[in-house]
Design a protein around this nucleic acid. Structure first.
Lengths: 232, 232
DNA sequence: GCAAAAGTGTTGTGTATACACCCATGG
DNA sequence: CCATGGGTGTATACACAACACTTTTGC
């Protein structure tokens, strides 16, 4: 078989725009929130264009940095899709992003935060991506340490559990939750306790995983720029 | 906060090429094989360019159809990355593809098949993508029915097990394997047996899942083209 | 002393693993 | 009758879900 071979050199023909979109979540006050921007009487996901010599992850991080004042963040690629955006052929590379809410409240962003349980109308693609991002985030809670990116460097087990409950939108058993977290060995006790009410103080923990880029089915090389040849 | 807002209308600036690359596997003679094309004294993954009004999945399917004579196939998006390819800024959307080997042998393709245990040198990006594709394929064997796409419509349990062993590159226990497959309820007995040697004939099964696009953490909407607005 | 959150164990149930023998057929 | 691959069951370890009470503190 020698059908039409690789279309390398032939006239490029039409070229799509490329944009990067981010499904940005945060957890605050026991709820999950998503960031949306307003565009032509409708809401849409934060997005931007990549630049040459910039990895897609870097593009996503840059867009996030432009959106958020503080840049405590986590990003992870979700999916890419082709479609028509604003009349133009566009290939969108989508990311899941996590932002850290302060005790003060929701992070300040260029757009607005919406309760993830009551998301306003967006275009169909953004809506699908949002659903998918939430699905992935929920799944990842089970086998990664992403949740730490929704918490400050030190936190109590109850706070961690509240993050899980907010994202999963259901209650968890305290004892089973604590057992699992301890068994996973991903927490390090700080030795410090926090007193904050008329009740027993809670121990503070920090992530032992040092906030690494959590990888399970996400490739580890995704943040580097492609290059020449390798040896194998 | 109102930093530089969404960069929508500003001059587009440079635009990357977009290509779609496929990590194409097949199983034959108890081994896993990968398809590579030769390009300028080096091997590379099969690839091509998307067209407007074509989903990325459709692009991948088209490239695969051009590569393979028969088009028994499965595709699933892997990852997207930006880099320099042949001197040009390129955003690559990568896919995992599965092809069906006939009893005759490896499917006929435009390029060549290589034993997945002895892959020749490729560029670094393709090499990473290949590793990642294999990782994903192996992981997916555990919780999806992708393996059926590496077998003809009806097959024996031993053949199915051999596919698993070829991909995973390790032996599996026959009884545990059969129990799990049966427990999953994804096989339907055809009632037919196959006689093919001086031993007891094997029952033939077919997939009950009707070769659907396997979805777990893969979005179900990925094969449609993006459009207007949705209602929620 | 009481309200309020922190912290702690046991039991049952299901799921995955290790492992060895008989069955049907062709020659 | 024998060689070849097809087919089957059991015992054990581990992971997960359900479930209630004691501890420490502030007021």
């Amino acid at each position: 078989v020698k059908p039409n071979d690789i279309d390398e050199s032939p006239p490029p023909g039409p070229v799509p725009n490329v944009d990067v979109r981010i499904v940005l979540f945060t957890v605050c006050q026991g709820k999950l929130w998503i960031a949306l921007n307003e565009r032509s009487h409708c809401y849409c996901l934060p997005h931007g264009r990549p630049q040459p010599d910039e990895s897609l992850d870097a593009t996503a991080a840059r867009i996030l940095a432009n959106q958020l004042r503080i840049q405590e963040q986590y990003i992870e690629q979700l999916y890419s899709l082709s479609g028509t955006d604003d009349g133009e052929w566009t290939v969108s590379v989508t990311y899941l992003g996590l932002a850290l809410s302060g005790p003060a409240g929701l992070p300040e962003i260029a757009g607005r935060w919406f309760d993830a349980g009551a998301i306003p109308q967006t275009n169909a693609a953004d809506s699908n991506i949002t659903d998918y991002g939430l699905l992935r985030l929920r799944a990842k809670l089970g086998y990664t340490t992403v949740a730490f990116h929704l918490l400050p460097p030190s936190f109590t087990l109850s706070e961690l559990q509240q993050v899980y409950e907010s994202v999963l939108d259901r209650q968890l058993d305290k004892r089973n939750f604590r057992r699992r977290i301890h068994a996973a060995g991903i927490l390090e006790p700080t030795g410090v306790s926090r007193r904050e009410g008329s009740h027993r103080p809670a121990h503070l923990y920090r992530s032992r995983a040092a906030h690494d880029t959590e990888t399970f089915l996400t490739p580890g090389w995704s943040s580097s720029t492609e290059s020449e040849t390798t040896d194998t």
